[in-house]
């Protein structure tokens, strides 16, 4: 790692010294610089991809446990995937987990996207007394990490009988989502107020302005919001583990199910299956993430610079 950082900074230095950016014919020196850069990038990328490569090859491994002698498995098979997808047992219920998580994710996504849009519109386009104070208050409240109050939320949900229920999970994931308004509000702030004023003159109500004008204009950032809230239940395992604690494996989400396979007593039997399951989950998530990344950049920077 240290070596890599050194190489990176050296290439950076090379790049800085040689005035890249001025368009002219490639000299042999520039060709060398280019080659060095590509090689450095390839090495860095390899380091970043090693765990992913390990995930992929282990998922196809004939050895069910962790192979500690070699990086690459001794033999390749599709059995791990077949087990994950078609042979549910007391430990592996992948298809059920996948459906559970999908349902939770869809409802979480719908509710939190609507909540966030409502809050963002109110803060960005409506002017009412106490708006600034409410914004500062929600920002401070948002600083309170959910892990802190998680246990209290658990006890509250237990009072309502919502632990071990997927409705409870949706509530936990989406109820407080209104606080995450910063990114979308930042985007809405870039829409000129005169758009709204013109609509008001034309006799449009606030409801019309919200649904027919502002929301369509925010489409790119809404895609970001939809995908990021959809992804939350797939990545979270702490909350899920706390809330779905009945021990009945058909109730679980993908994250708890996979994590459970790595209990000390099971890891040697299920590690390859864990990798196969992890790989299967990662594929749809990666696709969504790749779609989201261009909005991600826009979202983070626009939200941050405009407060």
């Amino acid at each position: 790692m240290i070596e890599e950082k050194y190489k990176l900074s050296e290439s950076e230095r090379l790049e800085l010294d040689h005035g890249v950016g001025i368009k002219k014919k490639l000299t042999s020196k520039e060709v060398t610089v280019s080659v060095v850069k590509q090689v450095v990038l390839a090495i860095i990328a390899l380091i970043w991809l090693i765990p992913i490569i390990w995930l992929v090859v282990t998922a196809f491994s004939t050895n069910p446990g962790i192979n500690i002698a070699h990086f690459f498995p001794n033999g390749y098979t599709l059995n791990n995937f077949i087990t994950v997808l078609t042979k549910p047992d007391s430990v592996v219920q992948f298809k059920t987990w996948f459906l559970n998580t999908l349902v939770i994710a869809i409802f979480t996504c719908i509710i939190s996207t609507i909540f966030v849009l409502q809050v963002s519109y109110s803060f960005s386009f409506c002017r009412f007394r106490g708006r600034k104070q409410l914004m500062s208050f929600s920002m401070i409240l948002n600083m309170f990490p959910s892990v802190l109050s998680m246990i209290i939320i658990y006890f509250i949900m237990k009072q309502f009988g919502l632990t071990n229920s997927h409705i409870g999970m949706v509530i936990v994931y989406s109820a407080g989502s209104g606080l995450g308004y910063l990114v979308i509000k930042g985007f809405m702030d870039t829409i000129s107020m005169s758009v709204k004023e013109a609509a008001v003159i034309d006799g449009a109500s606030e409801l019309t302005i919200f649904t027919k004008i502002v929301v369509p204009l925010c489409k790119p950032i809404i895609v970001y919001q939809i995908i990021s809230s959809f992804l939350m239940p797939w990545g979270d395992f702490v909350f899920a583990k706390l809330m779905l604690n009945s021990g009945i494996s058909t109730d679980w989400t993908v994250a708890i199910g996979l994590y459970n396979m790595l209990e000390k007593s099971m890891i040697n039997k299920y590690f390859a299956i864990f990798c196969a399951g992890g790989l299967l989950v990662s594929i749809p998530i990666s696709v969504l993430f790749l779609i989201m990344q261009k909005y991600y950049v826009e979202g983070v920077t626009s939200g941050a610079s405009k407060g």
Binding site: F115, G176, L179, S205, E206, L207
Partner: peptide, 26 residues
């Protein structure tokens, strides 16, 4: 409800959620 005080309409449900999930637990 959907014009002059639209922000109240919009903010009601998210606020209830935040009160339940954030403020009361805190």
């Amino acid at each position: 409800v959907y014009n002059g005080k639209f922000h109240i309409t919009l903010l009601t449900l998210p606020t209830v959620g935040v009160i339940l999930m954030n403020i009361i637990p805190i």
